[in-house]
């Protein structure tokens, strides 16, 4: 979708749409958004989805109907009795329901998880790592880690202290040259991390906190607008860092072997096995280009200092 301004076409940003237009589009034929390299048609009659999309995707480009859509994600009401009693939200994709229905107040997190699922199950033109990725001076840090390791908290802290958000959840690695394409989605925070980041970034925009999900309490943090303006700037892998939050720990960056890091990244990939030899070759390139570390931390300010030092040290090396 483009607006004609001074004789040239400018992309339409979601926040520029008339009020109620987002909810109307979502409830009708859908709202088509450009999200990183993917286009999503989002369809939902559920008010909580409209609220979440309006708040979290305000700075994303809205595409018109003539554009190709990669994924159509529908979050709709449960059928029959579940529309009225114990109301549910259901994710539909290509006529299937890949997830079990959730309580209707989980509808917006369900949309986010569904979008992640679409990419991780289908975007095999990238090597997909379950990992946060941030960038500074063209160099990317890949941070794979299991749930509870503090990956998203660290990512949220760093992208509000000088690092650019490429992704909180999925590293999109080129199968040609191992560069990383930004995805630029909201950051999913859970439980205590929500209050930690509220305190660390007082002017941050959060979605409504949803309690009692399978991951506990969940809230999304809006991606910084200035990072979305640079969404087409790829980055090169430079560091692979496995973060681990440990209460009371002093920050400690410990070198780890490239071979074990490669195997661990492979285990954290959604499609390394699917890609076969190409996956091995690309992952080898990522590791070749990267210094690999384990990182233990407890305080975000300490972590920021350690990551900043990585960049300055690279300049001296």
């Amino acid at each position: 979708m483009h607006a004609r301004v001074g004789g040239s076409d400018l992309p339409v940003i979601l926040s520029e749409l008339p009020s109620n237009s987002v909810a109307r589009k979502l409830a009708a034929d859908g709202l088509i958004l450009q999200v990183g390299p993917f286009s999503f048609r989002l369809i939902s009659p559920i008010d909580l989805v409209a609220e979440g999309v309006t708040a979290m995707y305000a700075d994303y480009e809205v595409l018109d109907e003539s554009r190709f859509v990669d994924y159509t994600v529908t979050i709709t009401h449960g059928r029959g009795l579940r529309r009225w009693v114990g109301r549910q939200a259901v994710f539909e994709f290509d006529g299937a329901e890949p997830f079990i229905p959730l309580p209707v107040d989980h509808a917006f997190p369900l949309l986010e998880w569904s979008m992640n699922w679409c990419i991780s199950m289908h975007a095999h033109h990238y090597l997909l790592l379950h990992s946060a990725v941030i960038e500074r001076e063209g160099c990317a840090v890949i941070m794979p880690a299991p749930p509870g390791s503090g990956k998203s908290t660290l990512c949220a802290g760093l992208v509000n202290r000088g690092w650019r958000l490429l992704s909180d959840e999925l590293a999109l690695i080129s199968l040609i040259d191992a560069t990383i394409t930004p995805l630029g989605r909201p950051i999913s925070l859970k439980n205590q991390s929500i209050e930690i980041i509220r305190a660390f970034v007082p002017d941050a925009v959060f979605s409504q906190v949803v309690h009692d999900t399978s991951k506990g309490s969940v809230s999304l943090l809006k991606a910084p607008r200035e990072h979305l303006l640079r969404i087409n700037e790829i980055a090169r892998p430079r560091w692979v860092i496995f973060p681990q939050y440990e209460a009371g720990a002093i920050p400690q960056l410990s070198a780890r072997s490239k071979a074990s890091s490669m195997l661990e990244l492979g285990r954290n990939s959604f499609n390394y096995v699917v890609l076969g030899l190409k996956g091995f070759e690309i992952l080898s390139k990522v590791i070749d280009a990267s210094d690999c570390y384990d990182f233990q931390y407890s305080q975000l300010n300490d972590a920021v200092a350690v990551f900043d030092e990585l960049v300055s040290r690279r300049g001296r090396d």
Binding site: S257, K258, A259, S260, M262, L263, L277, F280, E281, S284, I287, D288
Partner: peptide, 12 residues
């Protein structure tokens, strides 16, 4: 297919 870093090998 091989990769090697610091005398540790990874084979696919």
């Amino acid at each position: 297919h091989w990769a090697c870093w610091d005398d540790v090998y990874v084979v696919f």
